[in-house]
């Protein structure tokens, strides 16, 4: 079952906006309210909008299950890998080795109340991105799986 042309066009227009908003929430997780989980959930709502607007055959044409599962796995592996990379720097697991180092995400943060600087916080933004990609893929593929279970009944 596909919905009317108005709903489909609105979903087409809204999906990139929701994607960019979710990626904004993920990228600014260490400065403003938000983070990996919330941003990934926001992007998954965009995927749900597209899934309810089109039918199952049309959606699986470009929202592929393999890609989403790969996103989920790579997000989890990236999360653990960022944590394990601390061992290469001679620190313990999950140590924040990038903070204050001057490289990427390593600017020193001003203490107290400040307007915020994107290039701070060490490994926290990297972990935000990894978790955001994982939640994005995971929650979207759950909806796709449920739709594939319902598909035979003619929905």
């Amino acid at each position: 079952m596909r919905m009317s042309k108005i709903v489909r066009t609105a979903a087409d227009i809204l999906y990139p906006a929701i994607l960019i908003f979710g990626l904004y929430i993920v990228a600014h997780g260490h400065l403003t309210p938000g983070g990996g989980f919330q941003g990934g959930a926001v992007i998954a709502t965009g995927g749900a909008l597209v899934i309810v607007a089109y039918n199952y055959k049309e959606v699986t044409g470009w929202l592929k299950k393999n890609v989403l599962t790969g996103q989920e796995v790579s997000g989890l592996v990236g999360f653990i890998g960022v944590g394990l990379l601390a061992l290469a720097f001679g620190q313990v697991f999950f140590f924040n080795y990038l903070v204050g180092s001057g490289s990427i995400f390593g600017m020193p943060v001003p203490y107290g109340i400040n307007p915020g600087e994107l290039n701070t916080a060490g490994i926290v933004p990297l972990m935000n991105f990894a978790v955001g990609i994982e939640v994005w893929g995971g929650l979207t593929v759950v909806i796709l799986y449920m739709l594939s279970g319902l598909e035979k009944e003619g929905c």
């Binding site: 400065l31 403003t32 309210p33 107290g112 109340i113 400040n114 915020g116």
Partner: peptide
Amino acid sequence: PIFTLAPSE
């Protein structure tokens, strides 16, 4: 608990 332009400490 967010320090970005927080209204108070």
